[in-house]
């Protein structure tokens, strides 16, 4: 039993094989290169989604009428799995990074948007009465009220969404690209190298853990902490 755990069976690579595979992939630079490629795609796709979803979410959260008009479209698009966009992603963006970025963008955009809308819509009206009383201009209320009030909600959404996009990058890399941890998995499967598959899975898990750790650091920021301290 212990022996097979070490040396593996037909359906499951053993620890020995995995360690050797890890050594091999780490030494020839493949693991580092692919990890960087995956992180690059997640970062770009995620940032694009955040840059678009946060301002849009603040607008929709504060302008009920526009929100009511657009909400059916958002709620219609949201449940469609990002992977369902693969055919169109390839048709529109061809081969390379772009379709993968598009899939990550789709996966990050909706959770980010919906959390931001919720954060913006649930700001206590009293703060706006204070702002009106002190004659804040539109920009002053955005800068001094709306943005800081939404920041804790946005930071939490960033953390959840980054997890989602890191999950989706693997699927996105199974199409149209020749690098990344997702590509490593699909390529290893084709070569029946299950030990490589496990190495890729472990790497994904460890990096997911690190990303989440860095995001929890964000939650400790001064600009966010007031939210936790309120009952």
């Amino acid at each position: 039993m212990v022996g097979s755990l070490w040396s593996g069976t037909e359906h499951l690579p053993g620890i020995q094989q995995i360690l050797e595979a890890f050594w091999e992939l780490a030494n020839n630079g493949v693991l580092l290169r692919y990890t960087v490629a995956s992180l690059f795609r997640v970062t770009v796709g995620f940032y694009l989604a955040v840059l678009l979803a946060v301002p849009l979410g603040l607008l929709l959260g504060r302008q009920a009428l526009i929100h009511q008009c657009t909400n059916p479209v958002i709620q219609f698009l949201r449940p469609i799995s990002p992977l369902a966009w693969i055919p169109f992603a390839m048709l529109w963006f061809g081969i390379g990074d772009k379709p993968a970025l598009f899939i990550i963008f789709i996966a990050s955009f909706f959770p980010m948007l919906i959390s931001t809308v919720k954060a913006a819509a649930s700001i206590h009206p009293m703060y706006f009465q204070v702002a009106a009383n002190l004659q804040f201009s539109v920009w002053e209320s955005v800068y001094y009220v709306i943005l800081p009030a939404c920041l804790p909600g946005i930071v939490l959404a960033l953390r959840v969404t980054l997890g989602v996009s890191w999950m989706v990058v693997v699927a996105a890399e199974m199409i149209a690209v020749k690098s990344g941890l997702g590509y490593l998995i699909i390529d290893a499967r084709n070569a029946l190298r299950l030990d490589y598959v496990v190495v890729a899975m472990i790497t994904i898990g460890v990096i997911g853990l690190l990303l989440d750790y860095f995001m929890t650091k964000l939650e400790g920021m001064e600009a966010v902490r007031w939210r936790l301290e309120q009952k």
């Binding site: 206590h124 009293m126 703060y127 009465q129 204070v130 009106a132 009383n133 002190l134 004659q135 001094y144 009220v145 800081p148 009030a149 920041l151 600009a223 007031w226 939210r227 309120q230």
Partner: peptide
């Protein structure tokens, strides 16, 4: 409409919680 020389003081919790006390007054 509201005017800056007619100031309303709320029952509680109307300080902006994301600003320090000094920044709140500076508003």
């Amino acid at each position: 409409g509201p005017r800056p020389d007619h100031v309303f003081v709320f029952q509680e919790g109307a300080l902006f919680p994301w600003l320090t006390i000094g920044e709140n007054v500076a508003m």
